[in-house]
Simulated assay, not measured.
Amino acid sequence: MKIKTVSQCTLNETLKAWNKGFEGYFVQIEMNEEVFLNRLVGEGLSPELSIVAFDQNNPVGIVLNGFRQIDGKKTSWNGGTGISPDFRGKGVSRVLMEETIAIYERENVEVATLEAIKENKVAISLYEKYGYTVTNQLLFLSGEYEEKVEKPVDIHVETIRPEQLPHLSFYQEDVPWQCSWQSNKHGEAKVFYNENNEAIGYMLYKTVWNQEGAIDSIVLYQLELLGNGNVEHIPHFIASITKHKVKLATVNFLASNPATSYLMENGLEVKTEQVQMKKKMDS
């Protein structure tokens, strides 16, 4: 078994490792060249620190890795570990995990993170063997949402760029990797204030437009209520984007987030459940 970095592989080798690695997986995540390259850039994944396992000249496994400063700590993200079906159960995942942990140690990572499909007990067990623990339950929701505003509320809306979010004192940086502002620089963000100019919540999202120039769907990455906010404010948050019936989806929303419960009570259904896992690296 030979390990190469993604930067040492051809694009075809890397794509083969990824697509074969997730063949028959719980959700379909096959990628073409354009989607793969966009994901590398958009999610801050490192070709130099991501790895591919080879059996002779055949790419049979892959781990994609990203690195960021989150809450002042160098944090890594395993953006996908895949093993070709013919090589599952033959120790490839162990080789990849040991090399990945070694990379994290060399890079002085303080916190290692990843997400796993909740039903994928084999993967979760593997990660637990390497010191990861489950920290959060995460949900992908989707469905049709219709405006639920019943009475006017004095809310001031400020539209900002995602890059401005970390400069707000109340912004919570520690969110699942794909929900962070860094992964959604082409998205949109709004902050909401009450009549006393106190922040009551914020959203990070993306709007998808149809050929007629109307909003086709909304993807929510963050919808957070702050101390002065409450669940009754959520419909006003969404109405600031559109007051029409719309397809709505969430990415890795915490099951414990009040917004998650609200959306499930108002037309959205659970499509995928994941667990967030973290490992505190030894200093």
Score class of each variant (00 low, 15 high):
I234A: 04
V219F: 06
V134L: 03
F253E: 03
M97T: 10
E115S: 13
T81I: 12
G227I: 10
L126H: 07
R161Q: 10
V175N: 06
L204S: 04
P176S: 06
S142F: 15
G61I: 01
Q276W: 15
G72S: 09
L40F: 01
S261W: 02
F192W: 05
V219W: 06
V270A: 10
K279D: 08
N19G: 10
A116R: 07
G82H: 06
F22R: 14
E198K: 13
A255R: 06
G91N: 13
L114E: 02
E43F: 13
Y104E: 10
K73I: 15
H156W: 04
E110W: 04
N197C: 11
T100G: 12
I51E: 09
F237R: 00
A214R: 09
E115L: 13
E128A: 03
K245N: 09
L225S: 00
E212M: 01
V41N: 14
L49C: 04
V157T: 02
L126N: 04
L139F: 15
N196M: 03
Q28R: 13
A199M: 04
I155A: 04
E115V: 15
L268F: 03
K129W: 04
L141V: 14
K74D: 12
N257Y: 00
L225Y: 08
A116F: 08
L226Y: 00
A123Y: 08
C9Y: 03
T250N: 04
P47E: 01
Y25D: 01
E48F: 11
V122Y: 15
C179D: 13
G267H: 10
Y132R: 03
H244Y: 05
V191S: 05
G267K: 00
M277E: 00
I124L: 06
V122M: 13
E198M: 08
M203E: 12
N196D: 14
S240M: 05
F170T: 12
I200G: 13
V251L: 09
E158N: 07
Q276L: 12
D55Q: 07
K271P: 07
L114F: 04
V60G: 05
L49M: 04
L40G: 11
H244K: 08
I155Y: 09
E107V: 14
Y221V: 00
S142C: 12
D154Y: 07
D55I: 00
E146H: 11
